[in-house]
Amino acid sequence: MKKHIGIIILAMLVLLTLLLYTVAFTVDETRDIVLITKFGEVKRVYTGTQDAGLHFKWPAPVERVVRLDSRGHDLKSVYKQTSTQKQMQVMVSTFCTWRIKKPVRFIKAKKDITGVEASIRSLLGTQMTSVVGGYDMESLVNTNAKDMKLQEIAAKIKDGLEDKLLQEYGIEIMTLGIDALGLPESVSAAVIENMKKEREKEAQNYVSQGEAVATAIVGRAKAASNKILAFADRKAKDIETQGEAEAAKAYSKFEEDPQFGMFLRSMDTLRKTFKDRTTFVLDSDMIPALHWLRQKPSLDVYPSQVK
């Protein structure tokens, strides 16, 4: 007997464990709400945040464990067509995150999570239609952020649901928002047509603007260039005037004999003017030396006298 004491203890432990399974239960801190029902009536409620750990109950069928998820659940509504205040048709979809706030109420509603979500979805649709109907299109989309009221609309939908959901199903909405906003198919077709027209107009504007701006830029540059050149010419004339003023000082010597001075200047001008590439057609009499081509030399006649 002594030899097998270990095995016996082990067997007893296994037996004890099996027994424990029928009377003990755990409450998970991260996700559980546990209700203990006695013949269908809720007797005790344990929440993970407060009562996590090992607990005991009478074995079934006296007491039974009902386990609920204490965490938030995501729920999406149907994408639904509705009217704004000015009877414009829009499509709106909402979502909400809900959790069980009153587990006993939740159990009494005799619904599971799928059933509750169907009810929430239905209520959400009704409430959304009612709230959106109180706003115009400018409250849904607006370049002025202050006039865009999507958050306000979502808050109103949430406010309208909270009491009912808590009283009827024991649940609370943690958050609610609008996760899709659109237009019915026929309206979106008109919007797209309008977008096309606007873009065609925009394309034409780009073409004409491009030409106009480019021409203006080059025009401005040319005008600016002309201004610079005008100032450069003015400066060039200043420089040349300075040169002439200095040259005038050198020409002051001519005052001694202006006639001789002008003669020298004329000769200088002749030399420069007819320096090259000039064709002369001359009367042969003009050059006295040519006389010697036609006539033998004679001491009586000096060439300058020949006419």
Binding site: K237, G243, E246, A247, A250, G261
Partner: peptide, 29 residues
Amino acid sequence: GEVVEIIKNAETAKTKVIQNAAKRGNTFD
């Protein structure tokens, strides 16, 4: 650019006018 040419030509013209005047003055003398 062009401005350099304009100013350079003016400077050249200035120098030339002065040099010619000086040369003529010297020839006169």
